[in-house]
Write a protein that binds this DNA or RNA. Sequence first.
RNA 1: GCGGCUAUAGUUCAGUGGCAGAACGCCGCUCUGUGGCAGCGGAUGUCGUGGGUUCGACCCCCACUGGCCGCCCCA
Length: 445
Amino acid sequence: MTDSKKAPARPALKAVRGTRDLLPDQTPLWNHVETTARNLFARYGFGEIRTPVFEATELFARGVGEETDIVSKEMFTWEDRARAASEKPQTLTLRPENTAGVVRAYIEHQFANSGALQKLYYIGPQFRRERPQRGRYRQFWQIGAEVIGPPSSGSESPLRDAEILEMLATLLDELGIRGWQLELNSVGSAQDRVHYNETLRAALQPIRSQLCADCQRRADTNPLRVLDCKVPEDQPLIDTLPRIADHISADSRAHFDAVRAALDACKVPYHLNPRLVRGLDYYTRTTFEFTVTTGLGTQNALLGGGRYDGLSEMLGGPRAPGIGFAIGEDRLILTLQAQQQEDARTSGAASANLLDAYIAPLTPAQNPAALALARELRAANLKIEVGDGSFKLRKSFETANSLARHIILLGEDEAGSELYTVKTFASGEQVKVPRANLPELLAGV
RNA sequence: GCGGCUAUAGUUCAGUGGCAGAACGCCGCUCUGUGGCAGCGGAUGUCGUGGGUUCGACCCCCACUGGCCGCCCCA
């Protein structure tokens, strides 16, 4: 080592803004969420897809929409070097969402030719250059799924919409998320949306001067977003605006009614929200959000999704209607953690994730035997930590008590005999057992 | 991207223009093959970074960076 104060002061290296480390005290919960989701998706016939974390910028520009906030100001984009002088450099982007990538893969691998309905899920990081906040990070994780295929595969069926929603309700229930609410709406077909936009624009003209500054701007740039306004004073006026539900085609209405009928049959509760507008251009017909009240502050949307009947064609592919969703995994975890804290306050119980045993060699001479014993017990699928013979016995006990349910002493007494001294912390009982009986003893509580 | 609040020990947080603090945790001892409890003792640290004001700045001012809250938007 060098002298203590010689090193020149340098700024410490830190995880960059909006990114973070997930440490061992958190990762078990993440793995639990992901395992639960994988098992559930498998039961519904979904297969996993993993697409690249970066794609050609054009994919998102065309898929998500040039005018959306995501594409216009939130993407991490850079220019890749040209490989040859004759080649133009390519503009690449870290994926801000995963649906466009999945649909790109669907087209690229000619899934449509199979004629089959594709059910695909993904779990992975996404990237958006936003101001970080609770429940909003620059690298965040989404668990999502897509159902897509040629119309002949039934991809347009309202049954698919309802199945997705029912699956999500089941997932949140299985994870133990309490108090979730499903917000449901239909924004109509692409054509419906064009017509409704004009209707809305016209209706906004006479009242726009009475609206908040943001809404006055939205009235021009994106009238649909006026419906999303949260300023209390604007609400009475917004309530007078024409509703999407009254301006969608008979087909779209029938589709939406069928989705609702199937949800009712499955007893999935939902809340019709005629103002639910989603920010990505590709959404058509059914749109939805699941919200919670615990742990997320104003970022109360746990997941969102909807139908995207025209996306494949927007990306140059065949007609392939689809529906999908993305769960904000970070937000799901925040909600679960907030719930756990609530529970801890009421019950006071905090369950520790303890190892099965801590092996304490009493002198350095026992270290090799201790490691050999650990190897044997770990092979028997037990969770084991090994101390060091230089530790004082007191320290071994203290360390063992914080890490494990049992301590195994390994000293001169034990070395000669084949009997091991094992103490169980919960009961305070201490016994001597033969080596062969160790796994059974340690596995018990 | 805009506005507000904030940054002190491993952690949670006090603090005053003049020697850097508490609790918990950590280490040691009481206690040399027996932990939890208790007592005693000890170390905590570029006071986020860089400038400025001042005889003197952890404190006041500015900038930057990070975090939190709200807006925008989204998961």
